[in-house]
Each structure stands twice: as structure tokens, then as C-alpha cells.
Design a protein around this nucleic acid. Sequence first.
DNA 1: TATGAATGAGAATTCATTCAT
DNA 2: AATGAATGAATTCTCATTCAT
Lengths: 177, 177, 177, 177
Amino acid sequence: MMGESGYHGAPISRIAREAGVADGTVYLYFKNKEDILISILRVTIGDIVEQILIQYKRLEDKPIDALHAIVSIYFRTLGSDTNLATVTQVHLRQTDAEMRRKIGEIMRPFQQIIAKTIDRGVEKGVFRETIDRRIARRMIFGTLDETVTAWILSGAKYDLISLIDPVCDVLVNGLKA
Amino acid sequence: MMGESGYHGAPISRIAREAGVADGTVYLYFKNKEDILISILRVTIGDIVEQILIQYKRLEDKPIDALHAIVSIYFRTLGSDTNLATVTQVHLRQTDAEMRRKIGEIMRPFQQIIAKTIDRGVEKGVFRETIDRRIARRMIFGTLDETVTAWILSGAKYDLISLIDPVCDVLVNGLKA
Amino acid sequence: MMGESGYHGAPISRIAREAGVADGTVYLYFKNKEDILISILRVTIGDIVEQILIQYKRLEDKPIDALHAIVSIYFRTLGSDTNLATVTQVHLRQTDAEMRRKIGEIMRPFQQIIAKTIDRGVEKGVFRETIDRRIARRMIFGTLDETVTAWILSGAKYDLISLIDPVCDVLVNGLKA
Amino acid sequence: MMGESGYHGAPISRIAREAGVADGTVYLYFKNKEDILISILRVTIGDIVEQILIQYKRLEDKPIDALHAIVSIYFRTLGSDTNLATVTQVHLRQTDAEMRRKIGEIMRPFQQIIAKTIDRGVEKGVFRETIDRRIARRMIFGTLDETVTAWILSGAKYDLISLIDPVCDVLVNGLKA
DNA sequence: TATGAATGAGAATTCATTCAT
DNA sequence: AATGAATGAATTCTCATTCAT
């Protein structure tokens, strides 16, 4: 039960309606509203990180390819499910400071993979040594995030996958030695 | 739990208190809460755009300096007023789709300046011709946005101005020919 | 906050769990939640009354011993089962006026035994003739009730049985000729 | 505003309706539902205790008169306001364990006055030395409580004040040396 | 008989908005 | 123009009850 259909809109009543269940039913599966949103994010980011890690060893010596894999998996995952992306880009933002902190924690593994990729790139001499790594990480994540958000707000009319290469292009150039 | 707040974000009562007026007084100047937030954004982005335009003519032939001016003014404006930045980075996100559309409209002049700067850079041969300009615009805006959001969520502990140069560095390199 | 519970007191799910059956099973045996609580009280008070009546004939001429038997059986029954006492002292109070009326009806046989004991005591000249018998009944029941409630709210840490004699002591003195 | 009319019935909506205000208005004066009930009890018990203390010095040497004053003031206060008594005897019982603890704390000053009166009575030799003072306290409070509850559940048809003397009579005899 | 997933009515609480002063 | 008390719609969440299996 639950899970396949959409979860647009903030109120539990709408989430429940779109899932085709009664309001109370939601609470059989989730502790509270926060838990719903957090759970969706956790699973999504967990999936993305897991998929990246599978390819990661193979790409140990190729930071540019590793970055490409990160972008690719991120866009493919969110790009294949508009409802999912709506939750991560719209509903999860409609939350208070405490929740934002929890979101930050869940995002950490993904952010760490980005950080590691930057570190390796610098070690290998592929990325510039002079870049501020924290800034670089934010550039990468900010670009991905802005791209997905723009896609959602546009109504998901085009294909997010088509943006993998051009996005990698600007990112890599921003870092390249 | 979450939706213990009827709407999200800052209650009118807090906005009014911080402005030193009574709740009702707010409605003499603004149509409704949305109008307040939108107005704050409109003024802020208007200011930023105006300041950039003042310097813009002078930098017509120097796209890298123009980009530096954009980043500088954006960070200086938001970095000098934590409340303001909290509204733009937190409260304005806690809104529905219709509101997001309005926000997009208000941001347009700022986005257009970024777009124009990219165009000029490419014309002048300073930025690569092969970059996807829409993507480039999102990279720039996404990086700025992510940087300011991270700053706010960190509690605004460090100085946003100190990030102007390193942010410009990665952005320019992402675009450079 | 408070009314986070739709009704009050023990949820059916807990009652069912403690009985080792599923929620739905409860409804094969009871009409509704009220019926459960009422039934528990009916059985409990029925038991107490029955036990008292067994000893009652034998004590017909000894109103003080009869009162002792009442207190003893009341405290022994509730004191031997914390869950039971919690239902009678806590959950059964968390009900509306209509339910209170039903509770009153169920308590009547017990109250009548107290009344009868007072009457006999007066007849025999053991209790003062000048006492208001209705008040005396309430003193006895009020004292028992308050004692059991205090015991439950304390966490049932001490032994209710140890209070039989001292409680009888004050009650008997309140009535004695 | 608020305060004069009745507060029957558990739900805030009914409390508000009976106070002639909207649901939300209640929250301008009380933190939450618990706060309403607790506040009523605090004020009531505070009043009762205050009134008793006024007479208390004068009755230092007369424990029986002191007890009479306690009963009198308790019954006069609750007996003069059915709504008030309904809150203390019905609604305040419909609460969870945590709330019961708070209620216990608020009742403490009243219980302490009872305890002190017993102590003095024993010192003066007016009350028996052999009574268990904790039990005696519960007898007194249990009798008062049961009497007021019975009065409320009867529909407050008779006059609670008329019970002051007969109640004192049984109580005093329960304690007398 | 027994189950327990699903239901949905009902309760507390927040806060944008209004309006008498 | 300004106030802020009062409103009530909207929202989350609980739990008694039902019913298909």
C-alpha cells in the first residue's frame, strides 16, 4: 500500500488523498508529517549514494568521470519521478529551521561523496589546488539543486537527463587545473 | 507537530513586532502576508539590480569584473542583514507553487543580468562558446543561492563577504575560455 | 496537547494487547469501549459485593466487624490488581456525565451494603443515632476511594492491605456511639 | 472578558462556546487546555486556602473549629458556583497521569492545612494520638471530595452548605480523643 | 471466532486577517 | 493612521470502530 502514487501538496489530507488512503492511514506508516518527508528524502538520498558507491571504486583514478557519475545518478533518480523531485525541491523546503538541520544530516553522505571527489581530483592534479574546496562543494551542489528546482518549477516539461553533460561541462571547468 | 503553524515561516505578529508596529498596522501597507514577503524580495532584488546596473556600464568590456560585481553586491546586500537573508532563503521558500512563480518573476531582472554577463563574456571570447548559457546561468545562481543558504543555516557565524573571491574563482573558471 | 487522545485513558489497543487479543476481537465480546470499562467495574464490584455478602450473615450482629469486612475486601480486591485499580480509579473517571450515571448505578449495591451496615450499627446502638446516614455513607466511600486513588497515583508502591486497620479505625470512630 | 459564564464539557470548542468566544480566543488567555483547567484549580484552591488562613490564627487553639472552618470554606466556595465545581470534580479528573501529578501539587497547600489541623488536634489532645495521620488526612479530603462530587452528579439540586455541620460531625468523631 | 489494516470523526492549536475603538 | 483583541479556517494527529480475510 502507499508509495506509488503522488504526494504533492503540504497538508496530510492531500498527501493521503493522493495516496488513495484516509488521513489516519498515513499514521500507520509514518510517525508524523515530518517523518513522511524525511523518510522520502532518506530513501532517495540513500538510493543515490548507494548507486554512486557501486561505480565509485571503478572510477577512483578518474575524478571527472566520478563527478559525471554523481551528476548522472542524481539527475536520473530525481528526473524519473516528478513527485519525488517535487517533495525534495518544494515540500522539504517548506519547513522550519530544526527540520532543515535534519535534512542537512541526511544530505551529508551525498555531500561527502562530492567532497571526496573534489579531494581526489586535487590529489590527482586534475582539479586546481587553489580552489576553496568548501566553495567547490557548494558550487556543485548548488548547481545540481538549482537545475532540478528549475526543472520542477517549469513543470518538468523537458528531460533532466539531457542536462547531465552540459552541467558536468561547466562544473568540471570550474574545477579543472 | 509540523503544521502546528497554520502557514509556515515567520508569523505576521513577529514581522510586525520587529517592525515596531501592531499586527493590524501591517495591513495598512500590505495586502496580505504574501504581499509582505514578495515586497521584501522585490525591494531587495531591486536594490541589488540597481546597484549592479550603476557599475555595469563601466564594466561592459570586462565580463569577469562584471561577474565579480554581481557576486559582490549580492553577497554584500544579503550578508549585511541576517533578517533579510532569512526571509529570502528560508521564509520565501516556505510557499506554494503559485507564489514560487511570482518569486521567479521578481528574480528575472537579476537572472537577466547574469545572462547578459554570460553573453558578453562569450562575445568577448572570455567565456567558452561551447557552454550551455542556460546551464551557466543556473550554475552561477545556484552557487550564490547555496552559499547564502548555507551561511544562514550555519547561523550566519562567518562573514559572507569573505566568500566573494573564492566563489568568483570557481565560477569564472567554470566559464573561462 | 491534552486532547491528543481522542477519548481519554487507555486506548482499546492497549486493553486488547494486555488481554492478548487483537483490537477487533474486543468487539466480539463488548459493544464498545464504554461497555468494556463498565463491564470491568460491574464484575469487580459484583465480586466485591458477593464476597462481602458471604461473610455478611455471620456478622449481622457485629456492625464494626461488618465494616471491617467491607474495607478489607474492597482493599484486597483492588490492592491485588494494579491494572484493575487503575481502571476503576483513573480510566473510569475520564468519562462524561452519562457514563458517570451508569457508574453510579453499578456502585449502588456496594453503597447499599455500606448503608445497611450503618443502619444496623445504629439499630444495635453501636453507631451514633445522630449521624446523618447519607453523610456517613459518603465518608466511608470517600475515604476508601481517596485511599485507593492515592495508592494508585503513588505508583502502588506500598501495600494497600496494610491500610485496612488504620482506615477502619478512623471510620469506626467517626460513627461510634 | 471570559470567566463569568460556564466551562462545562471537555472540548475547547464547548468551553469557548459557553464563554461566548471563538475557539482561538481561549488561547489568548491560556497556554493550552491543561492550562485552563489548572488555572481554574489554582485560583480556586488558592482562594480557599487564603480564606482559611485568614481565620486560622484565631482558631489556633481550637482544632475542631479549625476543621469546621476548612469544611465550611471548601463547601461554600465550590457550592456557590456549579460550573467551578464541575471543573474540579468532573473535568479535572478526565486527565492523564502527568496532569494528575500537577493537580496533586496544586492541592498540596490545602492538604497541608488539613495535615496541620490534625497535628494540632493531636498535640492539644483533642484528637486521638493513635490515629494514622496520613489516613486521617485522606478521610477528611476523601469525604469532602466525595460529598462535592455526589452533589455535582445529583445536578446540584440541594444546598451544599447544609452539609457542613453533618460532615464535620462525622469527621470530628472519627478523630476525637 | 479472530485478526489487524483502514477508516474518519473529533480534538487541540496556530495564525492570517478583520474591525471597533 | 494605528491598534490589538477577537476570530475561525485550516491543519495535525489520535483512536474507537468496522470489515474483508
